[in-house]
Design a binder for these strands. Structure first.
Lengths: 151, 151
DNA sequence: ATCAAACTTAAACCAAGGTTCAAGTCAAGC
DNA sequence: GCTTGACTTGAACCTTGGTTTAAGTTTGAT
């Protein structure tokens, strides 16, 4: 056996993977995409601080909500280095995602109703039906850290 | 100029594209995927019957709802050839999609609430939080023409 | 010093839903 | 019967969120 933690406060990628349940390949991917960071040993291996565990929890939960990684990354980029994020930070992030989800739910409901209506009236035509060729620029809400920056 | 319709009842791919607003590349793709069909001229060019317009309206509306093309194709495959589909057919398809959308909405609502709760209690940990590592096999509803076949 | 386990990288591959391109063929108006 | 725009095909490419593989390096216990 080898590769046990030299430093109690730092995790190898394997340990981080085991504790988080996220494959190492995904962890490296997250790092390439700028969602998490690591220190490197003199031999170029990754070492993670404990705060990364919570960040990964946030990534997974957010991603499971359907938030794109790029948006999650934009929020995590606001985290100051080293300093543990405040609870307020997570709460603001949460409300940010909630709004996003609410918008998505409303959009789905609207579309469902339109579709049923559209089928009901038998139109399903390119001229009249909003669903067939939607100019739905309204639904294009921006996901991002705006509301975190601007409380 | 060239390629005007030889037959009033048939459309070239360009005409179909123009009338439907769907690029020819997408129309060919739909055909490759089995969602629509075409007759061929002796010179191997596609000609479409007018009924295809309505099928494409259905495809676009369904797809805009977030239904995967494969599921849409499975429903369209039930259309008898040549015979114009009954209104009942579209209504059953509609209710099929509505159920799917409702399930998706409910799932989103559940997740939104869990996420807020999870952030609120400050857990966001791998052990306790359902969102971080969900065993959410319940949400894996099958989309398909089952309900159309089995009224 | 040695050894195996764990790590490193780049590159290829997957799904979905197409778009773009190259190279060649068809249809129709004149 | 020629020209020109519309059509044909296959193959490569795109995005997102990763996984897999190959080949090589580091770590730490013995």
């Amino acid at each position: 056996m080898a590769q046990l933690p030299a430093n109690v406060h730092e995790l190898t990628i394997g340990e981080l993977s085991e504790r988080s349940g996220v494959p190492t390949s995904a962890l490296r991917f997250y790092e390439r995409e700028g969602l998490i960071r690591s220190r490197r040993t003199p031999g170029n291996q990754r070492r993670y601080g404990r705060e990364v565990l919570r960040q990964i929890a946030f990534i997974r939960a957010s991603h499971h909500l359907g938030i794109p990684l790029a948006s999650i990354g934009a929020v995590l980029a606001l985290l100051p280095e080293g300093v543990p994020p405040t609870r307020e930070f997570w709460e603001r992030a949460s409300s940010c995602w909630s709004e996003e989800i609410n918008a998505r739910i409303e959009k789905l409901e609207r579309m469902r109703d339109r579709f049923t209506e559209c089928i009901g009236c038998g139109c399903l035509s390119f001229d009249k039906c909003v669903l067939v060729n939607p100019d739905d620029r309204l639904g294009a809400t921006t996901i991002g850290p705006k509301r975190l920056l601007d409380p």
